[in-house]
Design a protein around this nucleic acid. Structure first.
Lengths: 188, 188
DNA sequence: GTCTATAGGCTGATAGAC
DNA sequence: GTCTATCAGCCTATAGAC
């Protein structure tokens, strides 16, 4: 996806239309312009994400299990919607320059979910007390970076600049899950 | 910095020159065009980073201490050179579209440093055996994201969308150091 | 070294035929 | 709904005066 690879300014309507096999004018007709298309993509991806995350809306599951599920859902999200991480990273860096106001609550809700899991863990005694905002950045940042950095990583691997195998997303998810399980456990 | 906030395509030479208080033509004259300026900035920042990281080039320090130092150095790097994380994140996402070939070895060297610390920790018995590439992504991704996401985070805090205080970089560094110390310790 | 003026190319959007 | 043709605006780079 061009918005993902090139950013809002780097992706031209002409190139987007060509890759989609449609006419340039169709984008204005169906999405009210470049910005409308951009917002439509992010809205679709965020709604998919929120629906998957609503699995966690129950008190029955333990917080440490919820955190592991949260990481797994985000891993799955990035595999299925690989554009969301890159588009959101770009928005984060630009202060949301191209971010429509209707998308902002989605971001807030994801942070609130991490906050809720950590608070539950503290109440239950399954997770040690940590700063929710800092932990949110570690969890989301690790995940977003792993998936977003794929283009350069793949290139460096292909060109033999780093001598590693292309990493498996599932393995990254389990590595992060284990680090968090050990690192956030009540007593160590 | 405009490359940082807007990306290579979003930042116009006109705007860069205006903010720097110089004439548009001066950028072509001194840096051989927009791309030359971009490469000059990244070269300067990377060289500064490598010099700071060379502190870790000794076997005397324990690997778990080195890892904490690595995180602290990167935290300091992002505070002093806040453009490096955002510019590199954008390059990572675009497969290095605007990345001059002379900058690629810098990226490899940073990964090799993480690899060396983890290998030392395993030999010494101070760190448990983990995948170096995955761990590299967790450490660098957490740090890059925390600092790169500042524009949107600050905006959401200022607008009262999330009810938190602007986070202190030093506190983020210590939170990450503690998570890694507990999460990567030999026995838990 | 520094500036203004301008060339030459590309961009997003749309009018209007079908 | 879909296309082609085109416009007005913006971009980078540079020629040439000082």
């Amino acid at each position: 996806m061009l918005f993902s690879e090139m950013g809002f300014d780097g992706a031209t309507v002409d190139a987007i239309a060509r890759r989609a096999g449609v006419n340039k004018a169709m984008i204005s007709y169906h999405f009210a312009g470049k910005h409308g298309l951009y917002t439509a993509i992010l809205t679709r991806d965020f709604e998919w994400a929120q629906e998957r995350l609503s699995e966690l809306d129950t008190g029955i599951i333990r917080a440490d299990t919820k955190l592991a599920r949260f990481v797994a859902i985000f891993g799955d999200l990035h595999v299925r919607h690989p554009h969301l991480s890159t588009m959101m990273l770009r928005e984060a860096m630009s202060g949301g320059r191209h971010l429509d106001a209707i998308l902002v609550p989605h971001i807030r809700r994801i942070f609130e979910r991490v906050q809720a899991i950590l608070a539950q863990g503290e109440r239950e005694g399954t997770l040690r007390r940590v700063d929710p905002l800092m932990t949110h950045h570690i969890v989301l940042g690790s995940l977003a970076f792993f998936f977003a950095a794929r283009p350069l990583r793949d290139r460096m691997i292909a060109e033999g600049i780093v001598a590693v195998e292309p990493p498996d997303p599932a393995r990254f998810v389990s590595t992060l899950q284990e680090l968090l399980a050990r690192g956030l456990a009540k007593e160590s």
